[in-house]
Design a protein around this nucleic acid. Sequence first.
DNA 1: CCCGGGGCGCGACATTTCGTCGCAGCCGCC
DNA 2: GGCGGCTGCGACGAAATGTCGCGCCCCGGG
Lengths: 186, 186
Amino acid sequence: MPHQKASEPSLLLVDDDDVFGSVMARALGRRGYAVHWAQTGTQALQLARQHRPSHAVFDLRLLEGESGLNLIGPLRDIEPGIRIVVLTGYASIATAIDAIKLGAAYYLPKPVDADAIVRAFGHAPGEAPAPQAPGEPEPLSVRRLEWEHIQRVLTEHGGNISAAARSLNMHRRTLQRKLGKRAINR
Amino acid sequence: MPHQKASEPSLLLVDDDDVFGSVMARALGRRGYAVHWAQTGTQALQLARQHRPSHAVFDLRLLEGESGLNLIGPLRDIEPGIRIVVLTGYASIATAIDAIKLGAAYYLPKPVDADAIVRAFGHAPGEAPAPQAPGEPEPLSVRRLEWEHIQRVLTEHGGNISAAARSLNMHRRTLQRKLGKRAINR
DNA sequence: CCCGGGGCGCGACATTTCGTCGCAGCCGCC
DNA sequence: GGCGGCTGCGACGAAATGTCGCGCCCCGGG
């Protein structure tokens, strides 16, 4: 369906949300990419093999426990030079680190606009991109700090919620609730 | 000053805060590292050349615009296999990404305890998370983390509760209650 | 000297979040 | 199949938080 102009870079978009996916597909298409949109991990790999995209954008949290993290490796196997930007509505430093270590080019918290994604592709995977410090960095809010801490412990326990809850000395139910809540900004 | 037992891995600690630095130096020393503590970037590089540390821990924000980020490259030039953990009281996803891309092993928001740092060294720079030791070194509780963070921000604002509350994005009343409670308890 | 601005401490009360219990569905294992 | 562990989620009282509002200080400028 995307018109494959020779000059257009091919982009793989993976997101299981119909609304977000279609909107983003159009937005990125308008910005000069030949967009291929997949809604599941397996479909994504299939499209990747078929089109050898030079760029990829996907959500960290796909349907049914499929973590987007597990897509990074296979995608790079298919197309070693691919530039991957991962998105998530539940951003945390811990998962950001994992994503970058696995080879993502950038990581963005989810209320995101297409321009930010395009900009993120500019960050080379071994380079120092940061213009650094516009103003004065504020200390993170108590909530955010708690969120980051929880996320770190969670990944340390391989995503096992029960184990993380025990280790944090908090009730599993409470942890679940906290995890279910979305991105806290400041 | 650190007794260089042959078996102890050498660790470079860089932090310009006297209190935090000395406390952390002792804590890491107790955990089996031969700690060398520097308070500036140039001093850090000097110590690094001298001791060839296998591990490094440093604050992102050093005196006067010296960004810890700029230490990563040089340190790796001196000792390519060095494992670096970056700390910061002003954590953000953006700087975390930069740190990892530049070769840090991990990145931690600043109210940290030595155990968390040691655990962070376990995160290999191209590897998945970490298995988490079966032992007891539990991460500090959310409550203590919050408490330390609040204290830090509070002193940063010279004990001004209202200012700290604004900076933490929490209501003054709530901050007051939290402060009052702990004061009595412990 | 008196006023306005800010910070501090605290009571009161509506909201929200947390701590618990409980249940059902899903593996992986023996 | 039975057992144990993990997960998602409803329910409901208990506890923490968000909000308003007051009175009291201290300080610098009219």
